[in-house]
Amino acid sequence: MSIVTRGFRGRREGADDRLPPGQYLTHDFPVLSAGPTPVVSRDEWTFTVRSEGGERRTWSWAELTALPVEEVTVDIHCVTRWSRLDTVWRGVSLDALLEDVESAADFALVHSHGGYTTNLPLEDLLDGQAWIAFEHDGDDLSPEHGGPARLLVPHLYFWKSAKWVSGIDLLVQDEPGFWEQLGYHDYGDPWREQRYQGD
């Protein structure tokens, strides 16, 4: 298993510079849930990418963890206004998963065990911006935080970082996810405070 360390530690000034507008700093890791915590073992876990043409590519847990594993240190920002700085994760970059998938899609709809979905532009999953993460702060990702594996897209509000991720549909047209259907923003940039539609 190769290990690449890639950090986002560019700015090391005071925490204030790293807090997007309207956010406060917390050292806890609050749990927000929209349903019961799905119980998914690593043995039965799979991750499936479906292209707009219907082509499917599925990875087992063993296949996922055989890909290059990266350790990243990132700040995360929840739309409910808490932010955590310098959170440490290990996982596989979406670049590694999507490099063999033929697609001209512009959008992605992320699916989770338990039925959760969230949408974002495909380009926000590429170029070292997103991971399938399975370790947090040195431990296996706990079920309440999305284990066995969650999406990690730290540059967008954390509801885009879907817990219990099971797959991604690549789409020509944007399709709103679970919260985006109910007034939350399709993109969700914390630095532009894009919490709700129209922000």
Partner: peptide, 18 residues
């Protein structure tokens, strides 16, 4: 981020309110 009400029988979402 919003209220989610689920069926006590099958856990499907009956109602969401934001």
């Amino acid at each position: 981020p919003g209220l989610v009400a689920r069926c006590p029988g099958c856990s499907d979402v009956l109602l969401r309110l934001v």
